[in-house]
């Protein structure tokens, strides 16, 4: 029962919460997606898309197209991406800078349509100019977009990491949590500007409640990136992130308990977190839950449950799950 209605009930609860908090369906979906809870996100995006939100149509299309929160369904993905394209086109013509950006992405990467680099670059470049103008006026959201655009070089002749850092830092200093998180990523990935700075920004974001940053702090401590190896700290941050609803952290915590890394080995706790991750649509969580049922790790052996979860993971493209299914008698 729980497994069938889990995501639906969760969505309902989150929806009611969101209504009470004055959050829109789009925001609800974005929050869920940032936590890695793609199943909840998908339902919220669908609701918002049906209300006419172009951004939600885009997110819904991407969810189906890449199988996030649902099985891969390119037909449905294309349907929503085309709808988003039309909606963005109208908004972009009216000067909406975010619409220009998304329109550029759809063309440039051929999301649901044929790749059209020329048109993609045209809109991305227009968006960049618009972001720049707004960012210079002090618009924090534009600073964040501008920083990311420079970082990935989308629609540009070349990327510019220095400019990216400049704008992301400005947005981060203005309190934008997404910018703090992205800034941490730039630092940790580039290895040119000092990885330890990533931890500074992630800690700031984490203390402000950003669960993605909490999970990343766990990974950084686990891998010893930008910090000394510290598996116990990794478990600490993953626990905080998991309790804040970050699905990747639930999976990581499950593995930490399974392996006894940073915590005493505890297969029941590992099972608990794998199940939480799986119920939120995490394919690796589904896979590991399937294996736990198959091998009786932290739970009683249950071949039916094992097969069911492995099939779910496989339907989301998990190669390990496909192989495990093939090997099951």
């Amino acid at each position: 029962m729980k497994k069938i209605f889990g995501p639906g009930l969760l969505f309902l609860c989150l929806f009611l919460n969101a209504c009470l908090a004055g959050q829109s369906n789009l925001e609800l979906g974005q929050d869920a997606s940032a936590r890695g809870d793609y199943e909840t996100a998908l339902q919220a995006f669908r609701a918002a898309a049906e209300e006419g939100s172009a951004k939600a149509m885009y997110r819904l299309g991407i969810s189906y197209y890449y199988g996030q929160g649902a099985e891969v369904d390119q037909e449905k993905g294309t349907y929503w991406l085309e709808k988003a394209l039309q909606a963005f086109k109208a908004e972009a013509e009216e000067g909406n800078m975010e619409a220009m950006y998304y329109l550029g992405r759809i063309y440039y990467y051929g999301q649901g349509i044929e790749i059209d680099r020329e048109r993609g670059s045209y809109w991305l470049e227009k968006a960049l100019q618009a972001f720049k103008a707004k960012a210079e006026e002090g618009n924090v959201e534009a600073m964040y977009h501008l920083g990311l655009t420079y970082y990935y070089g989308q629609g540009l002749e070349e990327e510019d990491w220095e400019k990216s850092l400049y704008w992301l830092e400005k947005a981060a200093k203005a309190g934008n949590l997404e910018a703090m998180y992205a800034l941490g990523l730039v630092y940790i990935k580039s290895d040119l500007f000092g990885q330890h700075q990533a931890l500074y920004w992630w800690e700031k974001a984490a203390e402000a409640g950003n669960a993605q940053a909490m999970n990343s702090l766990g990974i950084a401590y686990y891998k010893g990136e930008g910090a000394e190896f510290d598996r116990e700290k990794a478990v600490y941050w993953w626990t905080r992130a998991a309790l804040a609803g970050n699905v990747a952290a639930m999976h990581n915590l499950g593995m930490a308990y399974h392996k006894g890394e940073g915590a005493k080995p505890d297969q029941e706790k590992a099972f608990y977190w794998f199940e939480k991750a799986a119920l939120s649509g995490h394919p690796d969580g589904m896979y590991k839950l399937g294996l736990a049922y198959r091998d009786g790790l932290g739970t009683a052996r249950d071949r039916d449950q094992a097969r069911q979860w492995l099939q779910k993971a496989a339907s989301r493209g998990h190669e390990g799950a496909k192989e495990a299914l093939d090997e099951m008698p």
Partner: peptide, 26 residues
């Protein structure tokens, strides 16, 4: 084929840092 079980060789231990949604598609 790959060895089955939740032990060595299974899947990655730790998720990679999640890129921002606006990152280029995987």
């Amino acid at each position: 084929s790959r060895q089955a079980g939740l032990d060595p060789g299974q899947a990655r231990m730790v998720d990679e840092y999640t890129p921002p949604f606006l990152a280029p598609p995987a």
